[in-house]
Design a protein around this nucleic acid. Structure first.
Length: 413
DNA sequence: TGTCCACTGGAACGTACGGCTT
DNA sequence: AAGCCGTACGTTCCAGTGGACA
């Protein structure tokens, strides 16, 4: 009965109150707006370098860099989709393929999705990279097109797999007779060139476009533009919008972040039955986003990574606020035997710690303790209650949350 | 001044898996 | 069917190292 009443309440509030959103899709960061404020220069530059394709010439390779949320992807997609429309009007054989290298995180997968877009069927797995590359070549020559390849987030691919793929792609034109390929590389990391073979880098960056971070006032006008179609009239207060812009400006001028904040703030307001989104909703949104990010990250860890987090948690609980690798390994071993799981090696554990560090769940830094060796100091970047909440509900791990490791008895004061 | 701890992190290799070609 | 392929996840081995201590 109680549940019924609660739900009635929720439904009533949703139906009766003035709606906050007109169209919340507009705030998703994969939404492509009609206008991209403050990026006119980049649009013009990219447009200019890419237009030769309309006359059947290979356009220059382009290297684009800038931090996350500075509009690199949006501008590229914007320009290329306009180019595609124009090409259709002129009957020019131009096609482009957008590949996100985070998603296609290997040479094989990048080539596979390129094949797909030239109409070459390629299996999920099973072929050698060379084979897939050959198919791409024959597919391209059969298609007879100017093919513009966009490799978004190339930096992640290069850091893990090296630049072999880029090397192949920059040289592919030499073996192609009826088609031409132009490359657009997009990188979040400004120091990407350090990881690249100079030959590859120079041929990839025939042109370069840099995306500076947005400042607070630019972010504000971007948000304003989107808010017009996303929110109902008068449903968004000016100070809430400003706060979103200010918070995102403080963090690399990340427009994606600003949009997320605004959208979640709207959802918070909606849930609370408020007619207007105010600053407080933005603050809540900020906490919400971070909270969900961490919870999701924790839940998706593998068993052993979870055990590593739990080990740090236990050390932390016994007043060891910054543990060293050896201590963590001891606790971890004990937790493993408690679960009846064979433990991984210390070497492996150390790379798991590094992964957790880059996810922001732990904080690890190398320190030298002189006589007492060189190791890593590792701290928990989460509240203990959060660890309890997430792992406490886990069928296997729940028991270990309150377990007291024997190897830590001497620490307990 | 050198020693030597407790690791770090690179590299090569092993195993299991799903899935291709021939 | 055999043989090969890429990927994910792990192990084994080991040279390298910053700095407190003797």
């Amino acid at each position: 009965m109680g549940g019924h009443n609660i739900l009635d309440d929720v439904f009533d509030r949703f139906v009766s109150n003035a709606r906050v959103f007109k169209d919340r899709e507009v705030l998703r960061h994969d939404y492509l707006p009609d206008r991209l404020p403050h990026r006119e220069e980049q649009i013009r530059l990219l447009g200019e370098t890419v237009t030769p394709a309309l006359k059947g010439a290979r356009s220059s390779n382009i290297f684009i860099y800038g931090k996350t949320g500075t509009g690199k992807t949006a501008v590229t997609k914007y320009v290329l989709s306009h180019l595609e429309v124009k090409a259709k009007q002129l009957n020019a054989p131009v096609r482009f393929c957008y590949v996100n290298c985070q998603m296609a995180a290997s040479e094989y997968r990048v080539f596979a999705s390129l094949c797909q877009s030239v109409g070459m069927a390629v299996p999920f797995t099973g072929l050698s990279v060379g084979e897939v590359f050959d198919r791409l070549r024959t597919g391209l020559d059969a298609a007879q097109i100017i093919f513009i390849v966009v490799l978004d987030e190339v930096d992640s691919l290069i850091k893990t797999r090296g630049d072999g793929l880029l090397y192949e792609l920059t040289r592919i034109n030499e073996t192609l007779s009826k088609s031409k390929v132009a490359l657009i590389g997009i990188s979040n990391d400004l120091r990407l060139k350090e990881f690249l073979d100079p030959r590859v880098f120079s041929s990839l960056s025939e042109e370069e476009i840099v995306f500076r971070p947005y400042d607070a006032s630019e972010l504000k006008s971007i948000l304003l533009e989107r808010a017009k179609s996303a929110f109902c009239d008068n449903a968004l207060s000016d100070c809430a919008l400003s706060l979103c812009a200010a918070l995102a400006a403080a963090e690399h001028g990340d427009a994606r972040r600003a949009l997320d904040l605004l959208r979640v703030a709207g959802e918070v307001a909606e849930r609370k039955g408020a007619a207007i989104v105010v600053e407080e909703h933005v603050r809540d949104a900020e906490k919400n986003i971070e909270h969900n990010r961490v919870i999701e990250a924790l839940q998706n860890l593998t068993l052993h990574s979870k055990l590593v987090v739990l080990s740090v948690y236990h050390l932390n609980r016994t007043n060891v606020y910054s543990a060293i690798t050896g201590e963590i390994f001891d606790v971890y071993n004990e937790l493993c035997s408690e679960l009846g799981v064979t433990p991984l090696t210390q070497r492996r554990l150390s790379t798991l710690v590094n992964e957790l560090d880059s996810m922001g769940l732990l904080n690890a830094k190398v320190v030298s303790m002189g006589r007492y060796g060189r190791t890593k100091k590792i701290m928990l970047e989460l509240s203990r209650t959060l660890v309890r909440d997430v792992f406490g509900g886990d069928a296997r791990l729940g028991r270990l949350v309150d377990y007291e490791p024997k190897c830590l008895r001497k620490h307990a004061s």
